[in-house]
Design a binder for these strands. Structure first.
Lengths: 123, 123
DNA sequence: GATATGTGTCAGGAATCTTTGACAGGTCTC
DNA sequence: GAGACCTGTCAAAGATTCCTGACACATATC
């Protein structure tokens, strides 16, 4: 039988420079990588996750934020039966290919840290 | 004609955590991405490259070093006909797939910045 | 009320990148 | 020798990222 056939067999979307940049810098960190790995085994809420991989909540919170900004994980705030509000996170079904061509193509559409702070995108 | 058929169609080598970490953090930088892009159009020596993408030599030198350490580019010091020694760089034919599974698998073999400086690998 | 759970944020220090301006060396041509 | 190229390295500053210890807010139980 063929591996998996979830998606409609979408080829390679060719990510933009800024997008790829966010993804790569997000994944290029030991802790963040481990966080994604932990979430791959199942969704979890931040406090529990923090205990599981042994790291402070504030720190985890920040890392999850970074991962979510890159679209690698998604968090949803839901209310438990006992009324507690807890934020569950789970990995997003991402997929990127890294090759010279992909990088070259993406590099053409970068609007970041180039020189100016490029902080004016609100226009 | 079919795209390219260089390699023997090697599947997915499943990179180690440290390796993937180096690759991702190396590529997760605007300048480094642009450098790879520039080299995709053809090999070049550092001084010329520096002028081409407008950045100081010392800086470029450092970035190239990082890229080379990650195995994304390779540099060779050769002597021009007029006796000058120049270091030519070119992109390496790398290829990585980024998906939750790959990350999870790689995360299991990380030996970096975990906690201790892990600076003792010289043993 | 006190305690334990969950959520989030903030300020400040520690640790790492990133960047620049010298400086060293080399060969060749004028 | 002086100038134009190339190579490399270093120290110190600047900018980011990372990390920790408070603090705020909720709800439920003892």
């Amino acid at each position: 039988m063929p591996e998996v056939a979830d998606d409609n067999g979408v080829p390679p979307p060719a990510p933009t420079g800024d997008e790829l940049l966010k993804v790569l810098s997000a994944l290029g960190n030991p802790h963040r990588m481990r966080i994604v790995a932990a979430l791959t085994e199942g969704r979890n809420y931040v406090s529990a996750l923090a205990r599981q991989i042994g790291m402070g909540r504030p720190l985890l919170h920040m890392h999850l934020q970074r991962l979510e900004a890159a679209g690698l994980v998604v968090g949803t705030l839901e209310l438990a039966e006992d009324g507690k509000a807890m934020k569950y996170f789970e990995v997003a079904p991402f997929f990127y290919e890294l090759s010279p061509h992909v990088i070259a193509r993406a590099a053409a559409t970068i609007t970041e840290t180039a020189d100016r702070t490029a902080k004016e995108e609100a226009k």
